[in-house]
Amino acid sequence: MIKNSRTFTSWGVALATATAATVTIGATTGGPPNPLPTDSQGRPTASQGKEPPTEPQVTERRRIATSVLDRDFKFTLTALRSQADPLAASVRLQVFVFKDGAWRESDRALVGDVDGWFWFPLTGRHAVCEFSTAGTEPAPVAVSLLITPSIGCSPTENFQIKDGQIIPA
């Protein structure tokens, strides 16, 4: 009985091998030849070098705070994820003035250093420690953000807005 099952197994392997050989031979000898590629630039060859350059990456951004003072000013804090380090981020303060029925950006400035913040704490739940604005002239703006949960909040950075322009205080 064991001998018979070995015989069936060996015949099955031989039959599968013969079938594969027949299919391969039939494919190479019969039928039309493979079509040539229509686009010679479709794939880079060894002589062409590296792949063509891709489009630049879009910077991921997330608005973390907004303050609107009547129809005079609108302030936003936006986190900008670093393209060099996915864990780093920058923060941009933007000032908008209401003109001709729409908010128009009048100025922008960085809060802190370029890529000087951590992306995940900055875009998390308690990222804004302080963001105060006032409608006086010049308008004071104070910003303090979470560095990390274990370190806590950053020192407050102060700005003044005069005629729609940001002036570090």
Rank of each mutant, 00 (worst) to 15 (best):
P149H: 08
K3H: 15
V128R: 03
T38S: 07
L77E: 00
S47D: 15
V13D: 01
L80E: 05
P35T: 15
D85G: 03
T24V: 10
V141Q: 04
E130Y: 01
D163E: 15
T28K: 04
V111Q: 01
A84E: 09
P121T: 13
G42Y: 14
K162V: 13
I64A: 02
S47K: 05
N158T: 05
L87H: 10
E60W: 07
T38W: 06
F120A: 10
F73G: 00
Q48F: 11
F131G: 00
T24G: 12
S106F: 05
A20G: 04
E130R: 13
S67A: 14
K162Y: 14
T29W: 09
E157P: 00
F96I: 02
R62N: 07
D72L: 06
V13H: 01
G49C: 05
N34K: 14
P155M: 07
T133A: 04
R125N: 12
G49F: 13
R62K: 10
T17S: 15
A102V: 13
A27M: 09
P140N: 07
A84Q: 11
D39Y: 10
R104W: 05
F131A: 01
S90P: 03
A142Y: 02
S10F: 05
F8G: 11
P32K: 14
A88H: 02
Q48C: 09
G42P: 01
R43P: 02
A46L: 15
D72Q: 13
Q94S: 13
T17K: 03
A20C: 07
F8H: 10
W119I: 03
E60S: 13
S132D: 11
S144R: 02
V111L: 01
Q165L: 11
C153W: 15
G42M: 08
Q41Y: 07
V143A: 06
I147H: 08
V141R: 01
P53Y: 10
P140C: 11
D100V: 08
A109K: 09
A134Y: 04
V68E: 14
G12F: 05
S90H: 02
F131W: 06
R104V: 15
V143M: 05
L93M: 04
F118W: 13
V68K: 14
T76W: 00
C153A: 07
T29R: 15
T123D: 04
A16M: 13
R92D: 01
A20N: 02
E157W: 00
S47P: 00
G101P: 06
F120N: 11
Q165T: 10
C153E: 08
E130P: 01
L93Q: 01
D163N: 09
P53T: 04
L77G: 02
F120T: 15
G164M: 04
T136R: 12
Q48Y: 06
P56F: 11
T76G: 00
L80M: 12
I25E: 01
T7G: 03
T29Q: 15
P140V: 09
P168F: 13
V128D: 05
R62I: 06
T9S: 10
N4P: 00
I2A: 10
R61M: 15
S10C: 10
L110C: 05
F96H: 09
V114I: 05
D115L: 02
E157Q: 14
L145Q: 08
D72C: 00
R104H: 14
L36C: 06
L36Q: 13
W119F: 08
S144P: 04
Q83N: 12
A14D: 04
